[in-house]
Amino acid sequence: MSVKTLKINGIDVAVEAGTSILHAAQETGIRIPTLCHLEGVSDVSACRLCLVEIKGSDRLFPSCITEVSEGMEVFTHTEQLQENRKMLVELLFAEGNHVCAVCVANGNCELQDVAIEVGMDHTRFNYQFPQRDVDLSHPQFGIDHNRCILCTRCVRVCAEIEGAHVWDVAFRGENAKIISGLNQPWGDVEACTSCGKCVEACPTGTIFRKGSTTGEKERDRTKVEFLSLAREKHQWTR
């Protein structure tokens, strides 16, 4: 096992080769905001919140998919990066219909947490007020597309861990949408095992358990992490 040494925000860090900058920073006690990264599934670097600066390059690097290298000097919270993150969160809030006051995830929402973390108090951009629908055809769960930020965690958790691949992304650009099955109502998709991993993985209140009301969605992220990492950690009992 080879070890790489690098500096993150001036702090010397030694981590295993192949570790992502995001994980290396976590080990150092530095939290880099992210909305699309989920432990145990592949990374897509789509939210662009985890971008960091690396000395010697004028490009920004997504820390979730960039591996550490020897002698690397990483900066995670420069003024420019903070401003970028704030604008990105503002863009997300302007894009969907995010009304915290009536959302099941209020108080337990990663989008909300990141907004607070980056210091966003309003959005300077135009609210788009898109026409999006709510699918309540599944007996146990519901999906409210108004709250979706297209992080695709549900897609990955369903395809990579459950192996059912119920979710996917359809259409493009501003019309991109998470779909179940072949763009069918969720309840009609026979591949769905009703495991609820997508509910646990969703960072916002988009996918929820039926019957929960404002602020009642609580996530047990340890469950998803157990399911995704138990094989590596040999925690399966049989």
Partner: peptide, 17 residues
């Protein structure tokens, strides 16, 4: 705006704005 795929946030929402 018409050509963006919609995967990453800045391009998907930024081009619209």
């Amino acid at each position: 705006r018409d050509e963006t795929c919609g995967k990453c946030v800045p391009c998907r929402t930024g081009t619209v704005q």
